[in-house]
Design a protein around this nucleic acid. Structure first.
Length: 139
DNA sequence: GCCAACGTTGGC
DNA sequence: GCCAACGTTGGC
């Protein structure tokens, strides 16, 4: 299983919004960046991801699961853009902030730390375990 | 609110 | 195919 990280501005689409969608999940639409789209095309059903709040909060707040493979983004006619659907699995017991990730030596290579502008990112196995441990949830 | 980093676009 | 201009993201 692969691991990912989804960034969202909480004003636009928050963890609470995602939880409210329940098991039906929601399209991760609106992505207009090739790297982010390519990452979504690589996702498999059941892959896990972190849900990250950007801007004011800057913290990983929850765990999600990919529940639909990449398909055309319903918010555009442009055939270049695909997206997956994700559903909320559980919140972190404690949000893991960007500051913490930056301070952790084993997270220095994380895309979240190194490539702040990529909105859909891969997460390595070890990064996944570290953040789960910091957040107080099972990996 | 500002600015740096980065990606995309379009002229040549 | 290069590169300047521009737009967007997101941290501070």
């Amino acid at each position: 299983m692969a691991y990912w990280l989804f960034k969202s501005e909480p004003n636009t689409w928050s963890w609470a919004d995602q939880v409210a969608r329940g098991d039906a999940g929601e399209e991760w639409d609106g992505v207009r960046n090739y790297q982010a789209r390519n990452n979504m095309r690589l996702m498999q059903l059941g892959d896990r991801g972190f849900f990250y709040h950007s801007l004011k909060e800057k913290a990983v707040v929850g765990v999600v699961e990919v529940c639909a493979l990449a398909h055309p983004d319903s918010t555009t006619e442009d055939p270049r853009w695909d997206c997956v659907d994700i559903r909320a699995l559980r919140p972190l017991q404690r949000p893991v902030t960007l500051t913490e990730a930056k301070a952790h030596p084993d997270l220095a290579e994380m895309a979240l730390v190194k490539n702040t502008r990529l909105s859909v990112q891969p997460v390595s196995d070890s990064e996944w375990r570290i953040i789960c441990a910091l957040g107080g949830v099972a990996p």
